[in-house]
Write a protein that binds this DNA or RNA. Structure first.
Length: 995
RNA sequence: GCCGGAGUGGCGGAAUUGGCAGACGCGCCGGAUUCAAAAUCCGGUUGGGGUAAUUCCCAGUGUGGGUUCGAGUCCCACCUUCGGCACCA
């Protein structure tokens, strides 16, 4: 019986595509192509658990778009590769003693097999893995480019789009060296350069995770101070690390976001992450002299500043703060510096020394968790020193508190308790003065945040006010609205040389080194002195010596100390003597997993190039990416990092576009099948639970899930089941709050106390609701899996899996099959109903409607509706006899991007010898879409009263008279006055009447 | 708290962007086919009411207002929910 046999068909066509190299894209594409499409999937980390049903969701979407584009005659680049460096392979290796390379290769081949079984039209000849030395050779090369680049913030240039821009990455050799640095000698120059490179070393405190044995980026640490991977505790520790100066590109990354065709939500996420704020930096003079001379010192300082202007780096006698509210300067009644601020020691007076030291120590051991969790209680300690408020010469105390972060702004703030909630809390705790300088607008009530902080002062309830208003207690500025005041005072203070307009970003530099074995080695040597100690000078590995491969090692376990595994590599890898006789030691940190994924899309264009990471001509040919689809979990990190690398490579002239991803779409997460869970009462006979039902305790009710319930609604292993409304599948949940306890028994208060919980949850091993794509392919075929994942709902939406939904699309494919194939025949032959006859007008119309709808929907990535249109077509044509070939053939082509295997099989059956991959996409004829007469609604006072047939293209008058002639309408209008008639041609008629 | 989404039948979701709410699929009900089943096919399925019957009536897109001849769609306020950030001065 020639039933729809997905397994046979799919095997056949996958073999055909492989043999014929159907999807291999030459680098010299046909000249007659009508445009190009680069459709990219976020390449997977080949984990040990294999493909997840979430992967094929985005992959199917790009595959449909790619296959559609090929049929439209475009040249298409569509590739797959592996983000194969990373922690899990290394941890598995440590546990089992298998080399990570072995595990990785095994996992890759599983992924490859699974992906191939789904019939994606990837050009497998371009497959790449980030762990391949021929690949990471260029990752290392790009790192050297970063090392060789500084950011010239003042450089003006015009982008490819003709827009003027400021700021560009330039070769380090072009960095202007100040004369005093040149005079100080070669080492000073080198040091100066190192301070400007985009890749630099730093000793700043980092997130050290002892359990993972590595340092983590801020982005890899959760809010409660745990590692994102594994949820292990993370502590702060000062270590020498490589950093990438992504902050230099903050403005560029923010600015270029505007023109990209990305979902607003993702743009918002990135904007949020970059976190731009504008305000001013203000210098507060810190007098050192004994009282008496202090005022004179301040005045002298003020005068000198007026002359010199606002310096780039403040001196020792100045505390520089950043504020977004310079208009509240008159209300600054104290200052706060972070416990890690470099001035802590200098500002601490002998009397306060003990208290300060204790506080700073305590703050240093506090994890981020403690710091945020104790947010309710503000803590701090007085330094003993004061600073002078530049607007009024008032001396204010300087405190140390951990609510000020050393890593943001200048690590110091001016505190305006009247207008900042945190400062208010602190001032209240330590009894510091509160001076209001902003008058709230009339009728302002304290907000939800402000209200709870209210406090009685001098017999009156007072609240902080963080909003905008009018200036008071601000000398000459009184009466100015906040916004105006900000601009004015910033200008005035800038003229006085004590402040400057400033911008700050939440974004931090990217911690780029890890203490792992399974990552790209840094292409860097450290110079050693005669004793073998590092001199602090580094030398790049010569390009000709790339790649720096990983040494073969027996033991790459982390030692629980920050010494990276590579520092235990064999000496011949680790050490070398340079031609000039200098002893060198390799950098033993490795790059983070993000490195390889920052540029893989470039390599796909030119994967075999041994001369360059990409050929400039080929790059121009394929980039930018027209469609990039992947999970929202990469909305910030991966996408920001790769944009950053791409910007730098663009600035250095290696790329033709600054932004790699023209259009980005995040597929929604696929949740596990919605489970009905709850308490079921096991008793004989099925019946409804009712109000008043009694149970002796919740033990009478068993926790069940839909898996325990058979299709007819009986609970397996029990005699019956309590149902909500008599529906067969069901279990109920008791909401303890709605169940009354009477003695030892519980009584259902009312029907609402019986709840069915049918939530869908994330797929997870522990929940046991993970769907394995292999199983689905085995039972229903790849086409069904592809079609189902596209039919579930909008691509970007989170949606639950449903096995019966898979069966639904499988049934649809069966109907398609039987539309062509006589399933009662002995062999696979065309159904006799498929004939070379002229289609009827109605058949032509549905065909052309379907062609239009499917094409438009693919362009909109609205695959669920495209599929529903094809179902409508099948519902209409399936039962007809004869079924004209001229209508069925184009339909096969429409189906091809979605269910390519079945489509190829039917195409073949219709007598075509070649694959339909490059068959022209059907076109529709606008004139075939119109019907002779159409049905339109007639409303009276906006209510639908009748439907009438009108000739297509009827004018207003005709439509109105036809509507008036309708019996029902006439009855509705009888005895009433028509005030107005609205006629929308081809749409509707509406009579507005008065009684 | 701030930023960004989303609320439509029993369920997943449609709705030419202001013009017939519920396309398509799932589930369910009824029927055909069958010795029976599987598979397949046909009909019904928002709720309520009415009729011998129909192209019948009423209500209805989270809640409350508003704009409009007309609102799921636009405006205002609110509720719920999901995601991200969270002492960022």
């Amino acid at each position: 019986m020639p039933r729809y046999d997905a397994a046979r068909i799919e095997k056949r066509w996958q073999e055909y595509w492989e043999e014929h190299g159907t999807f291999v894209t030459p680098n010299e594409p046909p000249a007659d192509a009508t445009g190009k499409l680069y459709a990219l999937d976020m390449f997977p980390y080949p984990s040990g658990s294999g493909l997840h049903v979430g992967h094929p969701e985005g992959y199917t979407a790009t595959d449909i778009v790619s296959r559609h584009a090929r049929m439209l005659g475009k040249r298409v680049l569509h590739c797959m590769g592996w983000d194969s460096f990373g922690l899990p392979a290394e941890q598995y290796a440590i546990e089992t003693g298998t080399h990570p390379r072995v595990t990785t290769e095994k996992n890759i081949s599983t992924f490859r097999r699974q992906l191939k079984s789904l019939g994606f039209s990837y050009d497998w000849s371009r497959e790449l893995a980030t762990t391949d030395p021929e690949y990471f050779r260029w990752t290392q090369w790009i790192f050297l480019q970063l090392w060789d680049t500084w950011y010239d913030a003042t450089h003006e240039w015009t982008g490819p789009d003709g827009r003027q821009r400021t700021g560009k990455g330039r070769p380090i050799a072009e960095l202007p060296i100040p004369d005093d640095v040149t005079a100080a000698g070669e080492d000073a120059v080198r040091h100066y350069q190192d301070e400007h490179r985009l890749a630099y070393q730093s000793n700043a405190p980092v997130n050290w995770c002892p359990a993972l044995g590595t340092v983590l980026a801020n982005e890899e640490v959760t809010a409660d101070g745990k590692s994102e991977r594994g949820n292990h505790p993370v502590e702060r520790r000062a270590l020498r690390q490589w950093m990438l100066r992504i902050t230099a590109y903050a403005e560029r990354l923010l600015d270029e976001l505007e023109d990209l065709d990305w979902a607003e939500s993702i743009k918002a996420l990135q904007r949020n992450w970059i976190g731009k704020s504008t305000g001013a930096e203000v210098d507060f003079y810190v007098p050192r002299a004994e009282s008496g001379k202090r005022k004179a010192d301040f005045e002298q300082w003020e005068a000198s500043r007026k002359e010199s202007g606002f310096p780039a780096t403040p001196g020792d006698d100045v505390l520089r703060v950043y504020t977004t509210r310079p208009d509240t300067l008159h209300g600054a009644t104290y200052m706060v510096i972070a416990p890690e601020h470099p001035f802590v020691d200098r500002l601490t007076t002998p009397e306060q020394k003990e208290a300060v030291e204790a506080y700073v120590k305590q703050a240093s051991v506090k994890s981020d968790l403690d710091r945020t969790d104790l947010a309710k209680e503000k803590t701090g300690v007085f330094t003993g020193s004061h600073a002078v408020n530049p607007v009024n010469g008032v001396e204010v105390p300087i405190w140390i508190a951990d609510y000020v972060l050393v890593s943001y702004g200048t690590g110091a703030i001016m505190a305006v308790p009247a207008h900042d909630l945190r400062d208010w809390e602190f001032a209240v705790t330590f009894d510091l003065p509160i001076v209001p300088v902003v008058q709230p607008p009339d009728g302002h009530e304290p907000t939800k945040d402000e209200k709870p902080l209210g406090r009685e002062i001098d017999g009156e309830m007072r609240y902080p006010f963080a909003g905008h208003g009018t200036a008071v207690n601000s000398a000459d500025y009184d009466g100015l609205p906040t916004a105006e005041f900000k601009t004015k005072i910033t200008a005035d203070l800038a003229a006085a040389g004590v402040a400057n307009a400033a911008v700050n970003y939440r974004l931090r530099d990217w911690l780029f080194s890890r203490q792992r074995y399974w990552g790209e080695p840094f292409p860097v040597w450290h110079e050693l002195d005669d004793e073998g100690n590092p001199t602090g000078r580094v030398r790049p590995v010569d390009e000709s010596e790339l790649p720096v491969e990983l040494p073969e090692m027996e033991d790459f376990k982390p030692k629980g100390t920050p010494e990276p595994p590579l520092s235990f590599a064999p000496d011949d890898w680790l050490y070398r003597t340079a031609e000039d006789g200098t002893k060198l030691r390799r950098e033993t940190n490795s790059m983070p997993q993000w490195a390889g994924s920052c540029w893989y899309f470039l390599r796909f264009c030119d994967p075999k190039n041994t001369e360059a990471f990409i050929d400039p001509e080929i790059e121009k040919h394929w980039m930018p990416i027209d469609l990039y689809i992947g999970g929202a979990e990469h909305a910030v990190l991966h996408l920001l990092y790769s944009r950053f690398w791409n910007q730098v490579l663009f600035d250095r002239g290696h790329l033709s576009h600054a932004e790699p991803f023209r259009k980005l779409v995040n597929q929604g997460m696929i949740l596990g099948e919605a489970e009905l869970t709850g308490f079921a009462k096991a008793e004989s006979g099925k019946r409804k639970a009712e109000a008043g039902d009694v149970c002796s305790d919740f033990g009478d009710y068993e926790w069940v899930s839909s898996k325990d319930v058979t299709t007819d609604g009986a609970l397996e292993g029990a005699d019956g089941v309590v149902t909500k409304t008599g529906e067969p599948v069901v279990s109920v949940k008791l909401d303890p709050e709605l169940v009354e306890k009477k003695g030892e028994s519980f009584v259902f208060v009312d029907d609402s106390s019986i709840r069915v919980d049918s939530r869908a949850h994330k797929m997870s091993k522990s929940r046991g609701n993970v769907v394995n794509p292999d199983d689905v392919v085995r039972d229903y075929g790849a086409d069904s899996l592809r079609l189902y994942e596209m039919f579930m709902g909008p691509l970007e939406q989170t949606k639950p899996w449903s096995m019966s939904g898979v069966e639904g699309v499988y049934r649809f494919l069966g109907r398609v099959w039987r539309m062509f194939v006589d399933d009662r025949a002995e062999e696979v032959v065309l159904d006799p109903a498929v004939q070379d006859v002229d289609p009827t007008e109605a058949q032509e119309r549905i065909l052309h409607k379907t062609i239009k709808a499917v094409g438009d929907d693919i362009d909109k990535l609205s695959f669920n509706t495209a599929i529903s249109r094809m179902m409508e077509f099948t519902n209409e044509l399936g039962g007809q006899n004869p079924r004209p070939r001229a209508v069925l053939e184009p339909f096969v082509l429409l189906l091809a991007p979605f269910a390519p295997h079945l489509a190829e099989e039917l195409w073949h059956l219709l007598g075509h010898d070649e694959s339909l991959t490059f068959a022209p996409w059907p076109t529709y004829d606008e004139s075939k879409l119109v019907e002779a007469t159409i049905e339109i609604p007639v409303q009276v006072n906006g209510k639908l009263r009748a439907k009438i047939q009108v000739p297509n293209g009827a004018d207003k008058e005709t439509m109105q008279s036809l509507a008036e002639a309708d019996e029902t309408v006439a009855a509705q209008l009888a005895g009433k006055t028509v005030v107005k008639t609205i006629v929308v041609p081809g749409r509707m008629v509406n009579f507005v009447v008065k009684p």
